[in-house]
Design a protein around this nucleic acid. Structure first.
Lengths: 347, 347
DNA sequence: GTCTCGTTAGTGATCGATCACTTTTTTGAA
DNA sequence: TTCAAAAAAGTGATCGATCACTAACGAGAC
């Protein structure tokens, strides 16, 4: 780590008035120049440009905010401890914010979703932030209100788009996965579910159960051997399988995510079941490691950057009072790798 | 995703003067109250507390910043595209920033480290940010100066603390790993190096070569079979091994990180070499998946949150002109798992 | 009873930019 | 050449808090 602090005494930064003086115009003209007012003489513009360059002038954003009432700040709010929330989501969101002239601030709030909601309201009320991107599980009391002012977008870890687009982006791949596995001969399924305070985990659980029910007529014997509650962690997958009764019978597993899948695979191995010859398993996230592990993980490819971009675009639109832009193109895509194979012959 | 925008017209927020009027004092007294001035009559304090509560007053942080000259903002600067920079680092940093009364803003800058350096200077110059935490590889031209004002802390992905603490936090585990593997009988080593613009990658490469040289007298035959340049990705590990000449002989691999290790394991498998019976391999990061993969990965446990906290503490200290606090306790720790075993019997 | 000193609160200026409004300059047609 | 209208630039107030001073108050010493 390297640390550096300038020791130049910094003889105070130049202001609009100093630029104005140098360019021989009024401070207001400088302001116009800075804001890119079209109605200015080229000669004036040129002189101002020179003055700004010469003085190394940079507008004071704080002063501007005070006057305009817009802070230009949007906040991404994360729960603490952070459950490995992927940086690409944050980074993409920050990038979009910048593109639209906003700064993205990160707030990490300890405690439950309720505390986060309170903090969000406070941030908005303080004028510090114009909008909040609420990352993590949903607050118990539903969506927090934006308070007196400001906008708020809630982004569930794995954006299910339940409301925004009216499409079950989470449910679709689950349904597809079950169907595919059924077509491979699998009949007894197990679902290692994610934490149910997450909308996406709920959506997947629901889709899992519904799909099995829906397909049961087509595939005689198709049934769920159970839904094991858990978290997003590898431990959870391991424990979920390890704690199953010895006679639990299933050949296909839908895991909450890749970590859970990986944990489950190990627990299966310790039970003498190998993947995919005895059991097939599908994860979610397309984690880089899962592509190279043995067996490589079948999973749902999620475009994290697109998610982050989309969420921030929504927030920006909301803050500006525009209509939230439509096209999402957030298609979660299943990829089949070694962890899935045909069902073993019946014993 | 859920979006909500308050539609209450928000009849303007109360200011210090309104609070003052309601409490029957002057605006300055309100300011004192807000700043927690100790020299105030309890009765006055009580009236002010009531007024603030009744009006729902929140100080305008922008106005405060303008007057005090302190923006209260520190910036974490990330490269784009983001190379999976772990969120816990960011989150911990943000938390520390908040503890000290700062907001942490995230800036994602596309382009090389040079662009980032420029952006950092600009941020500091604009007064928008009081300090920058520079995440990612080092800029070509060395550490950027803080410019006219502001402080800057550079945080290399895997903090090597080369300078800050004067200790090779990165080198130590590498040396330990080589020594341990040598004691298990391994003699021919391979290093899958990380991108050399990262100080940590350079430090590890250096430590790898030095350690082998240092231990060679104790272990006859000990030598490096090569250093393969690469990145932090799994692809890199896979390709690095796949592209080795067919007669490359080694039994121990030091990989840049867990992803690289995982990629390498697969490539080794495709060459008919299994881990750990033919080749032992050590990663870095202790990624959750690596704990459950088969084989589970021997790796270096890194306390990401501690890294983030430390970096931000340094930045805060620097911004405040204090001495950077001492105790780091950032001990990277090796854990031995299935991917490491005794060297195979000589053929 | 007065005087001094410490405590508590008030007054007006200020941070640096933008907004609303006014004044000056330029343009173009009669 | 003149004059109205448009274009360009200027003036002073303002956003909401804090800072530097100043004023009033109350307690204790002589």
């Amino acid at each position: 780590m390297v640390a550096a602090k300038s020791d130049r005494p910094a003889g105070r930064r130049p202001t609009v008035r100093q630029v104005a003086e140098r360019a021989g115009v009024s401070h207001q003209t400088v302001s116009r120049f800075l804001r890119g007012d079209p109605g200015m003489k080229p000669a004036t513009v040129e002189r101002l440009r020179e003055a700004v360059d010469a003085l190394g002038y940079r507008p004071d954003l704080t002063a501007r905010s005070l006057r305009t009432g817009r802070s230009g700040v949007l906040t991404a709010m994360l729960p603490s401890p952070v459950t490995a929330f992927p940086t690409p989501v944050l980074a993409a969101a920050a990038e979009v914010a910048h593109e639209h002239g906003y700064f993205m601030e990160v707030a990490v709030v300890a405690g439950g979703s309720r505390e986060r909601a309170g903090r969000a309201a406070e941030l908005l009320a303080s004028g510090r932030s114009e909008g909040v991107l609420f990352l993590g599980d949903l607050p118990d009391g539903g969506v927090p209100s934006g308070g007196d002012r400001g906008a708020l977008v809630v982004f569930d870890h794995f954006d299910d788009q339940l409301r925004g687009v009216g499409q079950l982006a989470d449910a679709t791949p689950v349904a597809e996965a079950v169907a595919h596995l059924a077509s491979l001969g699998h009949r007894r399924f197990l679902h290692l579910a994610g934490p149910q305070q997450w909308a996406s985990a709920r959506a997947r659980r629901k889709a899992y159960l519904e799909t099995i029910e829906r397909l049961a007529p087509d595939y005689p014997g198709l049934a769920s051997a159970g839904v094991v509650p858990g978290t997003w962690s590898a431990d959870s997958g391991y424990d979920g399988v390890a704690q199953l009764p010895a006679d639990a019978a299933f050949t296909a597993v839908i895991a909450a995510n890749d970590l859970v899948a990986m944990g489950a695979i190990r627990a299966l191995g310790e039970r003498g079941l190998s993947v995919p010859s005895d059991v097939s398993i599908v994860g979610w996230d397309d984690q880089e490691m899962g592509r190279y592990s043995t067996p490589s993980l079948s999973t749902v490819v999620v475009d994290r950057e697109a998610q982050g971009r989309l969420a921030m675009r929504r927030l920006v639109a909301l803050v500006r009072g525009e209509q939230a832009g439509g096209s999402t193109g957030l298609l979660n895509r299943l990829v089949w790798r070694e962890s899935v194979g045909p069902a073993p012959a019946r014993t």
